[in-house]
């Protein structure tokens, strides 16, 4: 049997079931399944953004497995349509230490106003909406 056929047979063979005793503690998350494109809510439950990407530490021989540094958000429409990657400087970062819970949504333990990702919303509120008569108070 040649090497190509052996590789193909190995590929078709079902992978071993995951050992349920590993990991001993913790919860497993798949990036595409549980993180990417998920809604991010701040400590008050206000929607902040969605997770467009995730920043990891660089893999190193001494540091072990990479760990999550930050959730990234930005204008990804162009790169999703045309391919390529967003320049690093154009991402807005939400530090992973600010994440309180990962569920259907990602809940933060900080207010959305403290994050860089909401600066356009704050700027529009302060410089445009606030100049409209009645724009400085709750409409109710």
């Amino acid at each position: 049997m040649n090497a190509a056929r052996r590789r193909e047979r190995a590929r078709r063979r079902p992978a071993a079931p995951y050992p349920l005793d590993e990991p001993s503690t913790g919860r497993l998350l798949d990036a595409r399944l549980h993180l990417l494109d998920r809604q991010v809510l701040d400590v008050d439950g206000t929607p902040v953004t969605v997770v467009d990407d995730v920043e990891l530490t660089d893999p190193g021989p001494d540091d072990g497995a990479p760990r999550v540094v930050a959730l990234l958000s930005g204008s990804v429409l162009n790169t999703r349509l045309l391919g390529g990657h967003q320049p690093g400087a154009r991402w807005y970062r939400i530090p992973w230490s600010a994440v309180r819970r990962v569920g259907v949504t990602l809940e933060l333990e900080v207010r959305g106003e403290e994050l860089d990702v909401t600066w356009t919303e704050r700027w529009l509120r302060d410089h445009l909406i606030a100049r409209i008569p009645g724009g400085r108070h709750d409409p109710r």
């Binding site: 990991p23 913790g26 497993l28 990036a31 993180l35 072990g64 497995a65 999550v68 992973w96």
Partner: peptide, 25 residues
């Protein structure tokens, strides 16, 4: 050196209690 596929997803391990850094599993 044989190609076996593409990275289709990355699995993380979140420490119990969901506090602390999530690491690539």
């Amino acid at each position: 050196g044989h190609r076996v596929g593409l990275v289709v997803d990355v699995r993380f391990l979140l420490p119990s209690g969901e506090r602390g850094p999530a690491r690539v599993h």
